[in-house]
Design a protein around this nucleic acid. Structure first.
Length: 874
RNA sequence: GGGGAUUUAGCUCAGUUGGCUAGAGCGUACGAUUCACAUUCGUAAGGUCACAGGUUCAAGCCCUGUAAUCCCCACCA
């Protein structure tokens, strides 16, 4: 006996994973790269494979640990992967690791600061190689954790986001875009973090509601409201709404404003952007530090005066305030203005949405910077047309609409970051102004060189790096080694599974880039998962202290328990609560399955000892037909559920079938009638069907049983079992009889009733033939033919004569319960009759429903008459 | 301002093209114990399906409206 009394995941998981990995079963059956140089470029092996299944892992941070969201990701993706592997597809689950540009940079910079250094002491190449070493030191944790979660990915094909082929591909795309005129260098307002000294894309900015004092200040002839008095030094106009009657006379005039550094003059402009209702309907325009003002400045050709520098301090235009931080400057300016009587009033209850750096919380300043931009119009339009053409199926479906809506309003994408940790932008700027015929900027891949020479002209490297999303948007392309030259059977991916929170940042960009580079959508399906919330439905966060570490749960309950637990009750795209209880339920299922296998093996061993096993199986009684039917139903439902990404339903179905049907009814019946071959094949079917969700316990059992060669992980998905449907349906009668006996026994006064009273049947062939089974399942001591006039308590069964052999006194005590039962059945009968009285129902409802209703009436009537009969006897 | 969702048992959630008596897990109550499993077995209680209308023979599901909760985008100088 290889089965211990309970399943101990810790004893099996590591060994099983190592055995899988060593055997190479995680690699796709079909070569991933065409090796033959046939005329059409297609590998011979490609031709023979019917189906491929490819899925990529959203790359976890290379130097981080996995969090609960990764746990969910792996549970989802690996279940899909294992299912398709069992289905016989050439399955390729490609793992990845993310250099996580800014995230990692922030961690590294913090380390640097702890040691009393700053990034500005080193050049980019030096910093890059230092971070590289830093990441290399930290790396590996997450890979071990992925293994612990059971991720059946092809480790040999792991893609790191800074791998050479990734950089190559990114440069190729960039070059193509540059040549296509889609890349431009622009001096525009960008979101800028003065702590990290880098620009951000719009999606990286975190807006928070804050109370910001709203100052009503005297501004020439006007009073205007502003939250940013310190930017006054950069004001180059003052604006009113062209329809505002209050200010008509001023439009176009130049006014003199009393300032803290003395008077200055600005022009009054009229612009639709001004909301007449807000404040006084007058706005000061600071084009260098506000997005709206910038646009107004473009419209009216205003001067741009920079007030805040890259370090977050006021520039020399602030005069005696220069050198102060923004915050200090604001206070000082307000104080001075108060002194001068320029502050009319202050609204301290004004709530403003303030942009923050999503990493350090520093207030983001709109800053005028030269950056590389992608003109996204064409990319977005192409993506929209393919989306509208339904080339990608979304789960949940509504995300497609959301995505299209986003793409329609997408602004040009700033891809420059001023941090060293990332892929260098392959652009060089002309250093020699005298070479007027040469272009100012040229593309070149030699980013390892600080200077290059071309046509005798010297060019200097741009020191910026790419936004990580620019390279990440190539993920399906680079992971599958897609090339222009060869047909790639793994591209497009079958599915992209990732978090709903990065629909815009990542999914949208993968679609645009996939189409731009390959002409095809990069994946056929998108499955988006929501956030994993804590048991109270609150977001997990370090500060709240409610973070659940997936590895703790894996250690405590096992990998399978975690996987089943986190999939429980989860549906696409929704933020949903998660608690240890669901993992406990998963652990219990694993243990149940273990003990089921333990019992089945002991029965089969006994059969083999007696030489009784035979193959193929036959079904010899109705319980056996029934379980075949139930398993078939279960497996086809699981197939449909997985193919439609209904993970919770799939695990739920398996849970019910294994526990409530296989263990509670079939195995109990097999204690009476043993069918060794059928026990084997049914157990194997259930093990295989559960394997995608619980890979370790099913493999551990499979190996312990050792009935079938090889791993369960690479066996064949179960085929349907043969059975007699009529016999299977008959078994439902047995289940009803047993349930009714149990219910009645439990409702009788006293305890241990099942041991006290036997069953009596009255010439009923179904009961007679299955009396041993009924006796065993209901746990009564005896079951006999009545042989005489009825006695005891009649069970509430419409089509069977069955009595509990209880004394007269107990029957009398049961009288009230019996009356209640008759009334309850009567109510049900009335409801059915009412339906039949409605001529519209009889005419319009489908015939089979009407028939069912009629049958129901007959059945209830029979039941009532039997129960009434009993009542009269009492 | 624009968009997307959610609301079903004490809790977390299912409920696929409308179909009869709305399900599960956990929790609760009562009972069981050598014989695979107390990580077990049996039984039960617990629901005006957010609210109001409408369509239909029939509505948790479809339509209209209301309320509450949540998320995303834009944005308030």
């Amino acid at each position: 006996m290889k089965f211990s009394k309970s399943y101990e995941p810790g004893e099996y998981e590591a060994d099983i994973y190592a055995a899988w990995e060593a055997s190479g079963i995680f690699n796709p059956k079909l070569a991933t790269k065409p090796t033959d140089n046939n005329s059409d470029g297609i590998d011979d092996r490609t031709r023979n494979i019917e189906k491929t299944y490819s899925i990529v892992m959203p790359p976890p941070n290379a130097n981080g640990n996995l969090h609960i969201g990764h746990g969910l990701t792996i549970a989802l993706e690996d279940s899909l992967t294992r299912y398709h592997r069992l289905k016989g597809d050439s399955t390729w689950y490609i793992p990845g690791a993310d250099h996580a540009g800014f995230e990692t940079w922030v961690v590294y910079e913090r380390e640097l600061e702890k040691k009393g250094h700053t990034r500005f002491e080193y050049d980019r190449d030096e910093l890059y190689s230092r971070v590289w070493d830093f990441v290399a030191d930290q790396r590996g944790n997450m890979e071990l954790q992925l293994r612990a979660l059971g991720a059946s990915c092809a480790w040999d094909d792991l893609t790191f986001t800074l791998d050479e082929n990734v950089i190559d591909r990114v440069y190729t795309t960039f070059e193509k875009m540059w040549n296509d005129g889609m890349i431009y260098r622009g001096k525009k307002l960008v979101n800028y973090c003065t702590k990290h000294r880098t620009a951000f894309a719009d999606i990286e900015v975190d807006y928070k509601e804050e109370k910001t004092p709203l100052y009503y200040i005297k501004y020439g002839p006007f009073t205007l409201a502003t939250t940013r008095p310190e930017t006054k030094f950069g004001d180059t106009a003052v604006a009113v709404n062209p329809n505002d009657e209050r200010y008509q006379e001023w439009i176009g005039k130049t006014i003199t404003v009393e300032g803290v550094n003395g008077p200055f003059q600005v022009e009054v402009i009229a612009d639709e952007m001004v909301d007449m209702e807000f404040g006084t309907g007058v706005v000061k325009i600071t084009p260098a530090h506000d997005f709206n003002d910038w646009e107004a400045g473009q419209r009216h050709n205003l001067r741009v005066v920079q007030v805040i520098d890259e370090t977050g301090h006021l520039t020399e235009v602030a005069g005696r305030f220069a050198g102060m931080t923004v915050e200090e400057g604001r206070k000082a300016v307000v104080k001075e203005m108060e002194k001068m009587g320029l502050i009319i009033k202050v609204d301290n209850n004004y709530v403003n949405k303030v942009p923050h750096c999503y990493k350090c919380g520093t207030v983001i300043e709109p800053m005028l910077k030269e950056q590389w931009f992608i003109d996204v119009k064409k990319l977005a339009d192409v993506a929209i047309s393919h989306l509208e053409n339904n080339e990608i199926n979304f789960h949940p479906t509504n995300k497609k609409t959301v995505l299209i809506n986003y793409l329609k309003n997408l602004k040009d994408w700033n891809i420059s970051r001023q941090i060293p940790w990332g892929i260098a932008i392959p652009m060089f700027k002309k250093a020699d102004d005298s070479a007027t015929d040469e272009p100012d900027w040229i593309f070149d891949r030699r980013t390892n060189l600080k200077e290059i020479e071309k046509a005798g002209v010297k060019y200097v490297r741009d020191e910026d790096t790419f936004d990580t999303w620019f390279s990440s948007s190539h993920w399906p392309i680079v992971c599958t080694d897609w090339t222009e030259e060869n047909f790639n059977p793994y591209y497009p991916l079958n599915v992209m599974e990732t978090g709903a929170d990065i629909l815009f940042a990542w999914v949208a960009r993968m679609i645009m880039m996939g189409l731009y580079v390959t002409g095809e959508v990069p994946f056929k399906d998108v499955y988006l998962h929501g956030l994993v919330l804590d048991a109270q439905g609150k977001k997990m966060s370090k500060s709240k202290g409610n973070v659940i570490n997936p590895m703790d749960l894996v250690t405590k309950y096992g990998s399978d328990a975690f996987r089943i637990g986190i999939l429980k009750g989860r549906s696409a795209g929704m933020n949903q609560a998660f608690s240890e209880n669901s993992v406990i339920a998963g652990r219990n299922l694993c243990n149940k399955l273990w003990n089921i296998s333990r019992l089945v093996q002991s029965i089969v061993d006994e059969g083999e000892f007696m030489g009784a096993t035979s193959s193929p199986y036959t079904t010899d009684n109705m319980g056996e037909d029934w379980i075949c039917r139930e398993i078939n139903d279960c497996i086809s439902k699981v197939e449909a559920d997985i193919e439609n990404y209904r993970f919770a339903e799939a695990t739920e179905t398996l849970y019910q079938t294994i526990w409530d049907k296989y263990a509670d009814w079939f195995l109990e019946s097999q204690k009476i009638y043993k069918n060794y071959s059928l026990l084997k094949i049914t157990l194997e079917s259930l093990l295989i069907a559960l394997h995608p969700f619980a890979p370790f316990v099913t493999e551990a059992i499979w190996q312990n049983l050792s009935w079938t060669e090889g791993f369960i992980a690479t066996t064949n998905w179960p085929s349907s079992l043969k059975f007699d449907p009529i016999s299977a349906e008959e078994f439902e009668n047995i289940r009803n009889i047993v349930s009714e006996a149990r219910t009645t026994l439990a409702s009788l006064p006293g305890t241990n009733n099942a041991k006290k009273y036997g069953l009596l049947y009255d010439n009923d062939s179904l009961i007679e033939e299955n009396q041993l089974l009924i006796k065993a399942l209901s746990k009564v001591p005896t079951i006999n033919n009545l042989n005489g006039s009825p006695r005891g308590l009649r069970l509430a069964l419409a089509n069977h004569e069955l009595y509990l052999d209880v004394p007269e006194k107990v029957v009398k005590d049961y009288k009230d319960a019996l009356t209640d039962k008759i009334l309850a059945v009567g109510r049900e009968l009335d409801a059915l009759n009412a339906r039949l009285m409605n001529p519209n129902y009889v005419d319009k409802a489908p015939a089979h429903l009407v028939k069912e209703t009629r049958d129901g009436v007959k059945e209830k009537e029979a039941l009532i008459s039997r129960l009434k009969n009993q009542l009269e006897l009492i």
